[in-house]
Every structure is written in C-alpha cells, then in structure tokens.
C-alpha cells in the first residue's frame, strides 16, 4: 500500500479535529451567561461534538467570554500556554473585540488579539446562543480549511505578544 502524503494526513487530521472540540470551562466575563443555555437542552451544542472540559491540557478551544481585566489576563495567558496544540481562541462579544462598554475603564484590556491570537470573534453584547453556535460552525470550517492557525501565529510572533503582555502586566 502506498504511504499517504503529508498533505493527505493533514486533511484527514483536520477533518477529525473539527468534529470533536473540547472547550475549556473558564468563564472570564459576563458572556459566559449564555453558555449554559448553549450547553444544555435547548440549544445543545453537544450535537456538534462540542463539550465543556475542565483541564487546560485536554482542551482545544479557549473561550474568552467577554471582558478581560488585567488580573484575569495573566491567568488566561497561563491557561493558553498550558493548552496543547492545536488550540483555538474565540473572543466573545464586543468587550474582547475593542473594550465594549468598558472602553474607559482602567482595569479592562481592549483588543484581545494583541495578547493572545484570536481565531474568531463573535459580535454582540451579549451574543445569543445562535450566534455562539454559528461561530463554532464557522470555526469548524476554518479548521477544516486549515485557516485557524492562531497557535502557529503565537509561536511565530512570540516576541510581539510577549512584549505586549509585558506592557500591561508589568
């Protein structure tokens, strides 16, 4: 039998990866309020192969559910670095995107992707379960086509991210 090319292995791996995504159980902000409905009977995200998981080592997706203040950012970076490749980050709501209603707050960071690479953002404050599910579907497509490469970017541009992190964390 012929051996598979690297390209083919990648395609198959991506196809399998997207079907079983475990998200880490970390509610960083108020967007987490829409996760229980998404997880439970009404919207039931398990039908897409998504399930919450408790430890960072086994999880694939890190959800930044809303605002991150500086104190949480430190933990989030630790959690992110603990996670194994491939790993994906979804930013929830306008707070992760640009600070949202807390644009003038001294504690909340604006722009999540300066500190850790985000693969996807969900707009809204707070995003509805439908939006969350559609974001997951979109993430699956990105994984399938190999475009969800945040973890690679993080490695490539580590100096940039570390510099930004150092600036806010002190």
């Amino acid at each position: 039998m012929e051996r598979m090319t690297e390209e083919q292995v990648k395609t198959i791996a991506n196809m399998l990866r997207k079907r079983s995504l475990w998200m880490i159980h970390y509610c960083t902000g108020c967007g987490a309020m829409e996760l229980p409905p998404t997880m439970t009977s009404r919207y039931d995200m398990e039908r897409f192969g998504l399930a919450p998981y408790v430890t960072s080592r086994q999880a694939d997706i890190l959800l930044i559910t809303g605002y991150l203040n500086v104190k949480t950012l430190r933990r989030v970076i630790t959690v992110y670095e603990q996670m194994l490749d491939p790993k994906y980050v979804i930013g929830f709501g306008s707070c992760a995107l640009n600070g949202g209603v807390y644009w003038d707050s001294y504690a909340v960071i604006k722009q999540l992707d300066r500190y850790i690479p985000a693969d996807l953002y969900i707009a809204g404050c707070m995003p509805r379960p439908e939006a969350i599910i559609s974001a997951f579907r979109h993430l699956m497509e990105l994984i399938d086509s190999g475009k969800a490469d945040g973890y690679k970017r993080y490695k490539r541009n580590l100096a940039y991210y570390k510099e930004n992190q150092r600036k806010v964390l002190g």
Partner: peptide, 26 residues
C-alpha cells in the same frame, strides 16, 4: 493586582487617560 498609580477611585484619578496610556484601542 500590581497597581502602581494613585488609588483609582479617587476623583483626581483620570480613568480615560490611564486607559489610553496603558491599553491600545482598536
């Protein structure tokens, strides 16, 4: 955590100024 400025709830602490100095807006 690691707060180095004057206590933030005082009236002479300017939150907008602080946040535009420390964070980058999109």
């Amino acid at each position: 955590e690691n707060w180095k400025d004057i206590p933030p709830m005082r009236k002479d602490f300017d939150s907008v100024k602080y946040s535009s100095e420390h964070f980058v807006f999109r």
